[in-house]
């Protein structure tokens, strides 16, 4: 394992110190509670968005803390959910008296810890709603699994709900919109290589040189199948078929599209993929209203790509275009 770290045990604290040093005007870091909060605190009366999850997916979630998106993020150890105390500390640090929305990716650990945090927060008089993000269509048999995983769609949920909260909407409306975004969003990923967690020291799974994992999760969870590497056009066609089977988009629909690198993918390959995604949607008469191409929800050093498509109603698109200023997303201000 070759990594630019000081020691596996200090990766998270060292990275948090780095984030704080890099973005002093944007966010601040509480190194004891391991909470990243928006600089200057929240405005009284504003609903606050708190998210979190295991580290290793940067810029998710800390890179999305700022105006128009998250008020606080709590990073856990690499690929490990944060703990309830962290989430409670985050919620209390940014509380504006108008309620808190927990944005939780659907993994057993995240769900259990955020549930406990919501109970603790309620005991302290905070009003909390939780939205579960579960956009990964690679998980087909939700009855016999922990359910669909939360992946790239988290960015859309956090951006759109964050914009609504910034406009002063009440908690129920922010939560309802967050759920609408999740319900309209689907993701699918393929991996070309496994990722290596610093504490594990070796790749999380064995993937032969000429094979790809189709439907991979953002922690290297296996997906639907393994197959031989093929031209990008054919791989994207299969990915889009999986997405569009689960949620058909038809002529005249507006879409938000993210082509997301999993951490070890050159940007040039992401653009190759985006071209194919755009061609598939255009052939169906779907209009791509906005797109993101880059690394937004990574899986450490995994080579691979996820495609996220949100069938976006006009009000959601309007919120998408609203100003945002975070370490990883910025426009309109």
């Amino acid at each position: 394992m070759k990594k630019l770290i000081n020691a596996p045990e200090t990766v998270l604290d060292d990275a948090l110190a780095g984030i704080a040093a890099a973005h002093p005007g944007l966010l601040s870091v509480d190194p004891v509670d391991r909470v990243i909060t928006r600089a200057g605190g929240s405005r009284p009366g504003k609903v606050v968005l708190v998210s979190g999850g295991g580290s290793g997916h940067e810029p998710l979630h800390g890179g999305f803390v700022g105006t128009g998106m998250l008020d606080a993020a709590c990073p856990g150890e690499v690929f490990t959910s944060p703990v309830p105390g962290q989430m409670l500390a985050a919620a209390k640090a940014v509380d504006g008296g108008a309620g808190t929305l927990f944005v939780v990716k659907n993994y057993t650990g995240d769900v259990l810890n955020f549930e406990m945090a919501a109970e603790l927060a309620a005991e302290e008089g905070l009003s909390v709603e939780t939205v579960l993000v579960d956009d990964d269509v690679a998980v087909q048999d939700s009855t016999w699994t922990a359910g669909r995983r939360g992946t790239g769609g988290t960015v859309f949920v956090e951006k759109i709900a964050g914009a609504l909260a910034e406009r002063g909407a009440p908690l129920a409306e922010v939560a309802g919109t967050a759920r609408r975004v999740n319900a309209a969003t689907r993701s699918f990923a393929v991996a070309l290589t496994a990722c290596t967690a610093p504490a594990a020291g070796k790749p999380g799974f064995d993937l032969p040189d000429d094979e790809i994992e189709v439907g991979v999760g953002i922690h290297g969870e296996p997906g639907r199948r393994r197959e031989k590497l093929r031209p990008a056009r054919e791989i994207v066609a299969d990915m889009m078929a999986a997405l569009l089977t689960d949620q058909p988009l038809t002529a005249g629909d507006q879409a938000l599209v993210m082509v997301n690198g999993l951490g070890g993918t050159p940007l040039i390959e992401l653009y190759v993929v985006y071209r194919e995604v755009a061609a598939v949607l255009e052939s169906r008469g779907v209009h791509i209203a906005a797109n993101l191409v880059g690394d937004y929800v990574t899986s450490l050093d995994m080579a691979g790509v996820s495609i996220t498509v949100c069938k976006a109603a006009p009000d959601l698109l309007d919120l998408w275009h609203a100003p945002v200023h975070t370490a990883a997303l910025r426009w309109g201000m």
Partner: peptide, 12 residues
């Protein structure tokens, strides 16, 4: 354990 472990194993 709940306050330091995280993941699913912390709460469980």
């Amino acid at each position: 354990l709940i306050s330091v472990v995280g993941g699913a194993s912390g709460p469980l």
